[in-house]
Amino acid sequence: MKYKVVDKSQAKEIAKLAVCLTNEIIERTGIKHFDVDVPLAVSLCEGYVSSGLYNVIAAFDKNKIVGFGALCESRSLYAEGTFGIVQEFYVMPNYRSQNVGKELIKEIVNFAKSENWKKLELCTPPLPEFDRTVAFYQVNGFEITGGHKMKFTIV
């Protein structure tokens, strides 16, 4: 398995995996939290990666992307500077429990260090359907900080 930062040329593969992640969340919760639009996801991913607003580290099995973590930089007073947000993290089901996710987290942490980020944050639903996901992140060094993910849709 190889891990590396991807460029715009792999945006379509990343976007398709992000759609798989979205669909998995919808399936697990039974609630359509997101609209799934593959062409839009591809277009956004290409633009974000090209502009440097979105850094994607992917896991490759030969030449096939089997997992990825997408990162954005943010700033806050509580974090005392810049930090990274793991916006999406996904490993294909047949590659789970094979240390792909664990190694991907290590690569994400190394990337964060190279950017001089103070910390990494991510969000996962605090629902029983995601207990294994939460446990995975905890085993890999993340801690629960409380709160709820909330959104306000601007129309």
Results as ranks from 00 to 15, higher is better:
G30E: 01
Q138R: 10
Y3A: 02
T22K: 00
K113W: 13
F152D: 07
A59E: 04
K119V: 07
G30K: 11
Y54D: 09
K118T: 14
V36T: 14
K12Y: 06
K8F: 08
C20S: 14
H148S: 12
K16D: 05
Q10F: 12
V134N: 05
V100E: 03
V56A: 08
G67M: 03
S74I: 08
D35S: 09
D131M: 10
S114V: 07
P128W: 07
F152P: 02
S114Q: 11
V91H: 03
K113G: 08
P128A: 11
T133P: 03
T82S: 11
I105S: 03
A11W: 06
I57N: 07
E121M: 06
H148Q: 11
N94Q: 13
K64Q: 14
N140Y: 03
N94C: 10
G30A: 04
K4V: 00
G141Q: 04
I105Q: 05
F60M: 01
K151S: 15
Y48M: 15
F130W: 04
G67D: 06
K8D: 09
G30F: 05
V19C: 14
G30N: 06
V66P: 09
F130S: 02
G52L: 10
Y95K: 03
G147Q: 06
K102Q: 12
P39M: 03
Y95Q: 05
G30V: 08
E13M: 08
E143T: 12
K8A: 11
V49D: 09
G101W: 00
K119L: 15
Y3R: 05
S74M: 12
R132N: 12
V100I: 12
T124L: 05
P93N: 01
F142K: 01
F60L: 07
N140D: 00
K2G: 10
A18M: 14
A59L: 04
E143V: 15
G69D: 10
Q10Y: 14
G52I: 04
D61F: 13
F152K: 14
Y78Q: 10
S76Q: 03
G141P: 01
P93L: 04
G69W: 00
F136M: 00
K113N: 13
M1E: 00
I105N: 05
K32W: 03
N94E: 15
F111C: 02
E27F: 11
L104C: 01
V56L: 08
Y78L: 11
D61R: 11
V49G: 07
H33T: 13
I154D: 04
A59W: 01
L120M: 11
E129F: 01
M92V: 07
A112Y: 05
T29Q: 01
V86L: 14
K151L: 09
T29I: 06
L17H: 00
V155H: 12
S97D: 09
L77V: 15
F60K: 05
Y54Q: 06
G147A: 08
G81R: 00
G67H: 03
G147Y: 04
G47T: 06
K118I: 09
K119Q: 13
L53A: 15
A79L: 02
N116V: 08
L120P: 01
W117V: 04
